[in-house]
Amino acid sequence: MSDTKNLVEVRDLKMHFPVKTGWNKTIPLKAVDGVSFDIKPGETLGLVGESGCGKTTVGRTLLRLYTPTSGEFRYNGELVTEKNMPSLRKEMQMVFQDPYSSLNPRMTVEDIIGEPLDVHKLYSSRDERREKILKLMETVGLNAEHATRYAHEFSGGQRQRIGIARALAVDPKFIVCDEPVSALDVSIQAQVVNMFEELQEKLGVAYLFIAHDLLVVHHISDRIAVMYLGKIVEIADADELNENPIHPYTTSLLSAVPIPDPNIARSRKRITLEGEIPSPLHTPSGCAFRTRCPYATEKCAQECPTLQDRGNGHQVACFNR
């Protein structure tokens, strides 16, 4: 595999937050603890895992909303640093879960979408600015008449469209989508999922698509990465991961997804995980999943398995499966 073909290359990325545990004492919360993955231009990598496993932190660290503790991020082959991030900002955008809180309710749609155009001086006249805004609104399926309305006048699905139009204003090549459809009703969710897919076909933008709904992630992703306590435990092609999951965590996660089909639901065997995800302040030694793993051995407590390719890019971090 030629490395130059990747748009995004992440190597051993770590984001540890210092957490006060007492007077004068802090310990690191290892929110992201050595993740590596690639994304090709126009590709979607889905990122799944239970809440608190570090998905949002991965996205925010890539966009330098946090300064990573260590690790590398190459964008188009170029090492991303504090210094060149401002010039790369135009290339990378983020879309958030909550369309209600991520948009200023007192701004008009026109101003929300226009703001990044202003910041990056992407027009030469008022007319051009307006034209660009209307074009963006059309791209995400918003009615041009709504340009002068305020964000709070819109429904959840429409606000999500406004947020996406704003992200698209600078013509990015990579968008981190952090739970962008989680707050929406299913009937509206499908509209927004389709829009993401259509935008990708039209504009060739790559997504890191974070979500906890595994069916939605399967639908939209080319490949999927599964995280557990700050680490990626398995990455594979989306269909491959769903049909042949290898890591015991992936297997149980998939078996817990409610399937909207009574016959399948009745005949299916659930692999129920015991207990809950441990605190990221006190992660178990070795493999972090071993405390809930039915296959755990002595070795798992001593050593942490790394991702190994099992063929066709299906990577798994597990000694026993």
């Binding site: 429904s155 009937s187 069916l215 639908h219 909207p260």
Partner: peptide
């Protein structure tokens, strides 16, 4: 019928979802 068409399932992974248009 619209709801069932609009959710991803094993049978429509390779197809476009069919959303219910409009707003509640």
């Amino acid at each position: 019928k619209g709801l069932l068409r609009s959710i991803p399932s094993a049978s429509n992974m390779k197809e476009k979802l069919v959303p219910i248009e409009g707003t509640p």
